[in-house]
Amino acid sequence: MSIASVNYSSNGAVSPEPEFPSAQLSIRNVTKVFAGKRDIFSKLSGKTSRDFVAIEDISLDIEPNTFVSIIGPSGCGKSTLLNMVAGLSPVTRGEILLNGHPIQGPGPDRGMVFQNYALMPWMTVEENIRFAVETVFSQQSSKQLARTIKEQIQLVGLEGAEKKHPHELSGGMRQRVGIARALAINPQILLMDEPFGALDALTRGFLQSEVERSWEQQRKTVIMITHSIEEALLLSDRIVMMTRGPAARVDEILEVPFPRPRDRETIDQHPAYHDLKAEMEHHLFRETRAVEESRIQIK
């Protein structure tokens, strides 16, 4: 049985598929429409805009302890999808279930890692993590909190930088703080929005390996958005490829069969590596070219 189900049925037709008790996160027929501006002020200023369908009828099931990557051409609504899972952006149609319960809004059961780190610049490394754990574990004693903070700082290898402010750190170190902050609240699911996108190639590779290593230990469910084929192949159990927007859909889901622990040096020796990579490249190339062509036509 295929664990992930892709369901293209429209809202009207009830999907005959059974419930997936194994699914931790279940995205069901989700559509996202950004409402256009049609109020009187916009009309007077001639700035009306039409509704924009970012995502159309996406279904996806993610079971526990899997690392899922979402890849697609830019502007395809990957971040929108992740924001809906995070509860930061409401779902227009359909629903997202976490352990069988619909997601109503943001909550600490999902930890988020941001592309631009989103660290508070006025807080030190320690204070940034403290802000998260204090908010989530408000009933814990300060001793317990201090221990959690210390553990997280050790886990991402930031001992000695506790008292530094983000602007004194390199991009890679900042994202370690971002990851530590997301993990410190012990979420069920870790959501990462192009976590290594703003880093230089060497730092990116280093941090990917670190994430791979620490994922082996914790095996948290992860949803990661990425632009990098190699990154997706190194880290994921499953890769969701999305079509171009508007009205983006899931095009295909690839299973990544490589054994763990994985090593970035040797992973390409696996027999399936090059086929998977070629397939992803083909998909991304096709979608990106279509995006470019549609842009030319608009002009």
């Binding site: 995070a86 509860g87 943001p106 600490p108 988020m112 508070m120 006025w122 807080m123 908010t135």
Partner: peptide, 28 residues
């Protein structure tokens, strides 16, 4: 920066905590 507010929201911080711990220092 809306990302700071997103961080605060994903952590489930209360409105008051967000105002005093995030919004005011960010606007300082």
């Amino acid at each position: 920066n809306p990302e700071y507010l997103d961080v605060s929201k994903t952590l489930g911080a209360s409105r008051l905590r967000t105002i005093f711990k995030v919004i005011i220092p960010a606007a300082l």
